[in-house]
Amino acid sequence: MKGVSHNGKALLVGVGLYIVILGPIIPVIIQSFAFQWHWPDLLPRVWWWSVRADSTFPLAWDYVLSPYSHVFEAAGNTLFISLSVTLLALILCLPAARVLVSPHFKWKTQILSLFTLPLIVPEMALALAFLAVFIPLGLAGTYTGIIVAHLIPVLPYMMRVLVSVYQGLNPAVVEQAQLLGASRWQRLVHITIPLLLPGILAGCLFTLLVSSNIFLITFLVGQGRVETLPTLLFSKIGGGALDATAAGLTLIAMIPGFILLLATERHIRDYQRVGAVGRSIDGSHR
């Protein structure tokens, strides 16, 4: 009986969470199909499809999906930049995190807090400084420049996640494998990486999402020439009005994040399970 009411509560909280998270998206979806939609009407008075034939220029989804909106170029650029940034961040952070968690390392906490510094500096300051440095180096207005600049605000996230992943990695598990005669390579491939993988994926998810949402650095370092989903969206909704095309662009801009979330969700669940296994081994060991 108690269990049922507990489940009921959990269900209520779950439904409540879905409403809070997904609720704001519903008006955006309706707006993307609306032509006239004003307070106090619950639904649009005139829908886009009833006027699209008479319009001299593309309206709502006709605009969003037309080449004029630049949305596909922007999505491609966003994906390319954020994937490259994530890969680089991973390559840089994996060894660094490995060193930072070693028990012989003295200034661990101090160095870790230094890594969060870029998050405190205003994005505008970072962006202008990058531009000033990159212009003489010929990196301004290039993809390379944007990717390098994105690394700075992204590294703290990747670093934090990887450090905690390494901390969660029980050395006893690796030792056991060693005792059972596994070579260095076998230990890495069959023990360390599988145990770290879910955490690595979580870190990548973070950096992908952060990188694909950076506006000012992308705009200034890219000299306005490299269009990404954030720069496109900012130029559209900067005026303060959310019309049908702005709503449509917003929905498209949400797709990559949504796909990433779905793709990694299973692995993050694995992470929790593997974590539990690690802990149980730890317990029996003691």
Binding site: H70, L128, A140, F219, Q223, G224, E227, L232, S235, K236
Partner: peptide
């Protein structure tokens, strides 16, 4: 055509490029 949110961002861009020594024929705007 380059779409922007705030014209002041482009002014910053021109300013920074000019201060970095980019003269006529060398800027981006």
């Amino acid at each position: 055509p380059h779409r922007i949110t705030a014209t002041s961002d482009v002014v910053d861009l021109v300013l920074t490029e000019a201060r970095a020594g980019k003269g006529l024929g060398q800027g981006s705007v």
